[in-house]
Amino acid sequence: MEWFSNLLLLLCPLMMIFCMKGMGGYKHHHSHSSNDMDIKISKLELENEELRKEINSLSAKVQKDL
């Protein structure tokens, strides 16, 4: 029965290799290009700045009402 436990021990890494290959391996994590990420970051920075301005204007209104 020792051969059976050794067989199971060897099957684990082999199954992991096949599973990772079936999922696409590590390519899935690098699907976005650097340029796409730069564009997304720029859009988020602009949106963040707009939201900060809106928060400041709302804070000023609240201060005036007090």
Rank of each mutant, 00 (worst) to 15 (best):
M1C: 05
M1V: 09
E2K: 12
E2F: 08
E2C: 06
W3A: 15
W3V: 13
F4C: 10
F4H: 08
S5E: 10
S5V: 11
S5Y: 07
S5C: 07
N6F: 11
N6W: 06
N6E: 09
N6Y: 10
N6M: 13
L8N: 04
L8G: 04
L8Q: 04
L9S: 11
L10G: 09
L11V: 02
C12A: 14
C12Q: 05
P13K: 00
P13E: 01
P13Y: 00
P13G: 05
P13L: 00
M15N: 05
M16H: 02
M16C: 01
M16V: 03
I17W: 00
F18K: 03
F18E: 05
F18M: 05
C19T: 06
C19V: 09
K21D: 04
K21S: 10
K21E: 03
G22W: 03
M23W: 03
G24K: 02
G24D: 02
G24T: 01
G24W: 02
G25N: 03
G25P: 05
Y26G: 15
H28R: 14
H29T: 14
H30W: 05
S31V: 11
S31L: 09
S31D: 06
H32F: 08
H32L: 13
H32P: 00
S34Q: 15
S34W: 13
N35F: 13
N35W: 11
D36L: 13
M37I: 12
M37E: 06
D38E: 08
D38A: 11
D38H: 06
I39V: 12
I39F: 06
K40E: 09
I41E: 05
I41K: 01
I41H: 03
I41A: 07
S42T: 06
S42R: 09
K43W: 04
L44N: 05
L46F: 13
L46K: 13
L46P: 00
E47F: 07
E47D: 12
E47C: 05
E47V: 05
E47W: 06
E47H: 08
E47M: 07
E47G: 06
N48T: 07
N48P: 01
E49R: 08
E49L: 13
E49W: 02
E50Y: 07
E50F: 09
E50S: 15
L51V: 02
L51C: 03
R52K: 14
K53W: 03
K53C: 09
K53D: 06
E54A: 14
E54I: 10
E54W: 03
I55Y: 01
I55E: 01
I55K: 00
N56L: 15
N56A: 15
S57I: 14
S57E: 15
S57D: 14
S57H: 07
S57A: 15
S59M: 14
S59H: 04
S59K: 08
S59L: 15
K61H: 06
K61V: 10
V62R: 10
